[in-house]
Design a binder for these strands. Structure first.
Lengths: 255, 255
DNA sequence: CGGATGATTCGGTGCTCACCGAAATGTTAT
DNA sequence: ATAACATTTCGGTGAGCACCGAATCATCCG
């Protein structure tokens, strides 16, 4: 079914993106859950996803076939295992944007452990390759207050911000000679405000992990802030004390 | 079923974005077609959409009910008419991103008129509030070559670019004092390359319309380049002659 | 006040597809 | 080799939903 570039070019006047086909991939509860799980940026096996989504392995196989052939997931087969992950950063970004637009559905909490997990997830978690949750939003807003980011319809990195990054030892990403690394925003579904993504967001995340400011749970998307991280975030950005602990949730915007 | 902010806050630890529900809205051929049509940024009546999508009016009503209550469309009822449009720029942006990720489906061409329409659409069209199609891509690339935009993972406006905009009489958008207007890129499904969107893209589009460089078809998303426009695009940006006529399609990237 | 027009409600029909279990395939471990 | 394991294939079932037409409602026009 693959169309090579020449065919595509010759027929390009008669092609349309099949939005419905792509959306249909995500229109199923189970498949959507799988994609959300993969938003942690990691690689999962088919079995793990089956258990996570509470469906039979055979059902999972069918879903993965669809998602892979639809181009949303990349797969790698090793031995009797099937490893899948999101196809790429643009896929992750689009998914997060979609999630920001989506309506909210209450999810049942059955135990204290689940409640704690939930709280931690809201406080700080990975969003593919950067920091999301209340911590991510607090970071973005602290950087804005300090003039490192400017709010101009979206977010942009200021000259001061670029300087701050270099001072911190975060290398300028991208081939461009300019002092403007790429900034994207990502609508955070937990706090319903924007946090930092794009190349800068990813660099910041890597930096924080390298310096052990934060640690990622091996099995979930949850991030924990270390003692060193608390110090660093306070000193570098003046993050409020409350933002550094899991009970923190920013106030709702605009009353 | 609406949940006010207090309820939402109190329950916020137990909510998840219902990605599947949102995707289900777009997973239908007809609804997807409706959304793509509305990507022209305009306002359509229910009847117009029914005819456009070739379904019964009653069917259209059902679709519009779903899309509106799902938050994708905004509606306004005037007399016996029902006017709908996309809910906002973020909705439009996410839709275009999705379309860029979507697989391509050949569309039957039945007449010469259809073929011409198709060609015009590929050459230049609106993408909500900015210019897309081969012309949009050519603009973005010409600006990049002239150092007005820098390609750094995505696209960013350079200082020279900001200066160029002001010189052209395009006011700096946004409240920020900085010389960095907001730049977004939008993956163009016709040419499969990025064109300029965001505040700068929108300003550029408005400017071009104001100066009568381009004219929008009242019934479709098609843009026509005027004689004045050809001169302006050539003089301001050195756009190649071929890019200014509907037969032009840029070469595929990276052979 | 009618008659035309745009939109909606409703019942019924047909198709698609998510799901499971049981059996099969292929890989690793003993 | 044999056993344990991860994944896949296949047939069958049930639910959801896109669609239409006919009737109805509401608005605009003469």
């Amino acid at each position: 079914m693959y169309m090579n570039r020449w065919d595509a070019d010759q027929e390009s006047l008669a092609e349309t993106p099949d939005l419905a086909a792509l959306a249909a991939l995500l229109a199923d509860r189970t498949r959507a859950a799988i994609c959300m799980a993969l938003l942690d940026g990691g690689t999962w096996t088919a079995g793990e996803l089956a258990e996570y989504a509470s469906v039979a392995p055979s059902t999972t196989t069918e879903h993965l076939n669809l998602l892979v052939s639809g181009g949303l997931l990349a797969e790698e087969r090793r031995g009797r295992r099937r490893y899948v992950r999101l196809a790429g950063p643009d896929t992750a970004e689009t998914l997060e944007n979609l999630a920001g637009l989506a309506p909210y559905r209450p999810v049942p909490i059955r135990s204290l452990a689940e409640a704690n997990q939930r709280r931690a997830l809201h406080h700080a978690r990975t969003c593919y390759d950067h920091i999301a949750g209340a911590l991510g939003v607090a970071l973005a807003e602290a950087m804005t207050e300090r003039g490192l980011l400017a709010r101009d319809y979206g977010l942009v990195l200021t000259a001061a911000g670029a300087q701050w990054l270099t001072a911190l030892g975060i290398p300028d990403t991208g081939p461009s000679a300019a002092h403007r690394a790429h900034v994207r925003t990502c609508f955070d579904w937990t706090v319903r405000r924007q946090h930092l993504s794009g190349a800068v967001g990813a660099a910041l995340y890597r930096h924080a992990v390298d310096r052990a400011w934060i640690v990622k749970s091996p099995t979930t998307r949850i991030l924990g802030v270390t003692a060193a991280g608390r110090t660093a975030f306070r000193d570098c950005l003046g993050l409020p004390e409350e933002a550094l602990f899991p009970s923190f949730t920013p106030a709702a915007p605009r009353g």
